[in-house]
Every structure is written in structure tokens, then in C-alpha cells.
């Protein structure tokens, strides 16, 4: 489940093992892109962005990373930094272009309900109806972020992350 290296040292290794004279900053950013594009895109989608908008946000994130590194700013915990910038940019884009609102199913026919009983569908549907903070905490946990990193990305407390995950689990177990 935890697919992303959690140790910030791994990132530093990625960046520092590349001697400046041998590998350009552009290559470093591209290497980071190859590692983090999919996790960041999934995160952007969990915030309700369309794939095309998510891709544009990711491009902005890595252009910002390029500027960040070129300015000699800290390389500590760049993974959290990437998710945090992605979160901010995605929210800004979403303000300009609201996502469709999901409304409760009051009109599903018995036939629809019967077919929707498949576990995967139920889980997917249950996740879609979670409050955003709970859904996003689940997404970031699935991407391998530690609770303190999730707290930093979302600007909430560590306890807030744990409680959001607990509530999400409760709702998933009710609905799925």
C-alpha cells in the first residue's frame, strides 16, 4: 500500500547524488516528476479535479519546484512540499472552475441498487461521498505520507488527521 519512499533521505540522495556538473537541475526535476507525477495526479483527482486540470496543476507544481531549487531553497522533505503546493494550486483552480456537486441518491431504482451492490462499486461510491477532508486524508495516507506530513499539507493538526481517518473508516464501514 505504501508505494512512495517515506524517508526524506531518499529524496536527498536522489538530488545530492547528482553532481551539479554532471546532471542539470532540469534532469533532477524530471527525475522527481517521474517519481511523483502519478501520486500527485491521483491526489489532485481526489480533490475533484478533472484529469486535464490535474495534469496542468502538476505541471505548475514542477515548474514551481524548478524555481524553488534554482533559488537554492531547502531540499528537506520535498515530498511534503510537492503535495502542499499541489493542494494549494488545485484548490485555486477549483475555485475558478467548480467541480460537479455530488448529491445523495434518492432516485436509484431497486435494479440500480442491486447492481451497485458489488463491493468495489460500493467502496468507490462511499469514498466519493466522504467529506473532502476525510477523502483527502485517505488519499494522502494511501500515497504513503506520514500523519505529520498529511497535517502539514492540509494545514491541520496531527490529531485532526487521526480523527479524520477514524471518521472516514466509520463511514466506509457503514456504506461499503
Amino acid at each position: 500500500m505504501r508505494t512512495i519512499p517515506t524517508d526524506a533521505a531518499l529524496l536527498n540522495e536522489l538530488l545530492e547524488s547528482s553532481a551539479p556538473e554532471a546532471v542539470s537541475l532540469e534532469s533532477e526535476v524530471t527525475a522527481m516528476f517521474d517519481t511523483y507525477r502519478n501520486p500527485l495526479l491521483r491526489f489532485a483527482l481526489s480533490l475533484g479535479l478533472a484529469a486535464a486540470d490535474g495534469e496542468e496543476v502538476i505541471q505548475e507544481v514542477f515548474l514551481a519546484l524548478f524555481q524553488h531549487l534554482r533559488a537554492g531553497k531547502p531540499k528537506d522533505n520535498l515530498r511534503s512540499w510537492l503535495f502542499q503546493v499541489c493542494h494549494n494550486r488545485a484548490l485555486k483552480l477549483r475555485q475558478r472552475r467548480p467541480a460537479p456537486v455530488l448529491v445523495p441518491t434518492a432516485t436509484a431504482t431497486p435494479e440500480e441498487q442491486a447492481i451497485a451492490r458489488q463491493t468495489k462499486e460500493r467502496v468507490a461510491a462511499a469514498i466519493r461521498t466522504l467529506p473532502e477532508q476525510e477523502r483527502v486524508c485517505l488519499a494522502l495516507r494511501a500515497e504513503g505520507l506520514r500523519y505529520r506530513e498529511i497535517a502539514g499539507v492540509l494545514g491541520i493538526s496531527l490529531g485532526g488527521v487521526a480523527m479524520a481517518l477514524e471518521r472516514a473508516v466509520g463511514r466506509l464501514r457503514e456504506k461499503a
Partner: peptide, 26 residues
């Protein structure tokens, strides 16, 4: 188990191929 299902659902999303996006970034 509930968290595992949620994580599986999240990680199994189909994403567009990375190649075009990488070329654009470069």
C-alpha cells in the same frame, strides 16, 4: 481492511500515460 480497500481504490485509478506530460514539462 476498510483502509486497505480505500487505498486500493485510490491507487488503482487509471491515469493518462506520463510520457506526454513529461515531454511538456521538459
Amino acid at each position: 481492511e476498510a483502509l486497505g480497500m480505500a487505498a486500493e481504490e485510490h491507487l488503482e485509478q487509471e491515469l493518462p500515460p506520463i510520457d506526454g506530460a513529461r515531454t511538456m514539462l521538459q
